[in-house]
Design a binder for these strands. Sequence first.
DNA 1: CGACACCTTGAAGAGGTTCAAGAAATGTGG
DNA 2: CCACATTTCTTGAACCTCTTCAAGGTGTCG
Lengths: 276, 276
Amino acid sequence: MERQDSFLIFINWQEVQLQGNIDQYQGYHQFDAKIGNMNPETIKVACSNCNLRELCMPMGLSLEELDRLDDVVAIRRKIKRGTTLFRNGEKFMSLYAIRTGFFKTCVASEDGRDQVTGFQMAGEVIGLDGIVNDHHTCDAVALEDAEVCVMPFDRIEELSREINSLQRHVHKIMSREIVREHGVMLLLGSMRAEERLATFLLNLVQRLHARGFSQSELVLRMTREEIGSFLGLKLETVSRTFSKFVEENIVEVKQRHVRILNTELLRDIVNSKACI
Amino acid sequence: MERQDSFLIFINWQEVQLQGNIDQYQGYHQFDAKIGNMNPETIKVACSNCNLRELCMPMGLSLEELDRLDDVVAIRRKIKRGTTLFRNGEKFMSLYAIRTGFFKTCVASEDGRDQVTGFQMAGEVIGLDGIVNDHHTCDAVALEDAEVCVMPFDRIEELSREINSLQRHVHKIMSREIVREHGVMLLLGSMRAEERLATFLLNLVQRLHARGFSQSELVLRMTREEIGSFLGLKLETVSRTFSKFVEENIVEVKQRHVRILNTELLRDIVNSKACI
DNA sequence: CGACACCTTGAAGAGGTTCAAGAAATGTGG
DNA sequence: CCACATTTCTTGAACCTCTTCAAGGTGTCG
């Protein structure tokens, strides 16, 4: 399998542009084999020839700038399924660009309440919560074996002082997260169970599609309980709502395998308030 | 009334430090008179002698850096109650530091659903949502006559390339907003009505206290409906929950005037899950 | 193959919403 | 400055959605 630098992906909450051939990016783990294993835990790598570069790094860099970017991503780190990349309270040092795998982030209140604040996949950046107080305020848990690029934040700041497009990019990543969370607040604050689950499925499949996966099929990496936590519902309600969608021939569900049979109907459910 | 630069306020979601005397900052509008009115709409000003500087700008700047900072805040702008500072879809140009007044920000979905995403007061910065797509994705509405410092974002980026502490500050402001929204997601996703309202009141009064207002008394600048939208409740539920708090002698409520009689009980309500 | 985690489904119950009516405050114009 | 219109707030009663509790089923992994 060859790496092709011809594919460019711009990820947007609302809008997805696909250019070039990304068919070869179809599995989460296939890159790992190519890296070799000088060190089982951490591997020195370069952004400049990474297929995901266009997802997590700014475009239009000069060769010289790209070269300097390679210094930012000092190392990679592998995270086994079920373990944490970082944890609430830990010192903040780096942002992490997900290379492979799937994460959830969750916050907890003092009294043990738990809230999944998001699910993150390849090309997305996590750790932004740690900047403000120099320690992380949420947990990042790998929902499958994963690999991340470790980007020490002081290096990012240093370099983004010199490379304007990197600076702008960092700002955009943070702003995008703010806007994403606005969307979640809208969901949690005003939607009913079916609308929440429909929104969730459409969002997941859209992001997966932007990464070369199917528009209609997906494998959930999280449990019903984790979905429920994210959507502000109990796991039973999530399960029941899935069943209802199945009955209405909107989706097929076999455990964590979901096939969307009717995207339009899902969209209608999300926008149901408009009909009233 | 003299301006005193001796008061320093660090605002934190969890933690508030107060240093020095801030008693003189007791009214929203009192500064206006001093500015004069060369122009009713926009007034040229300087950060370097602004009382709110420590709230919205980084600390420990040299005199020369402070001087350059004055160039960032090109102008001020007054916003009449009920009008918008910016609106969903408008081109993003600037961040705004609130000088006086009180705002709400809200997002709307295509189908006309509405969600208040936050309430902002003096010293807080709004507009961060606009960075990612170069246009705003929410409305900012003044809930009382307000004045903001307009900070053109390209100027901020330019200057934060040269002043490290400003760069760090901008990052912190964005990260703080992300963490704040995590808290709101926790609230919306896992709390019951009483817990939500209690959390809301404690948060408001804490922020007001950090600005020199009472620890126990506050005037709500928003309607029950706006509170409800923010908390994911209907206005009737907000009203009923207020009434319940009154019955239990936790607060006194006269329309928008609220006096907290028992902060501990409010805290207990928030942490009620711990008792189970 | 058995233990464990995860998922589904049912029935009862609680919390919040909806609809409705009236009261209180606020703003407006004469 | 008062009267009227409008907005905002409160409260009640019926209803509905989601939760809770419970039991059984399915899948997975050592």
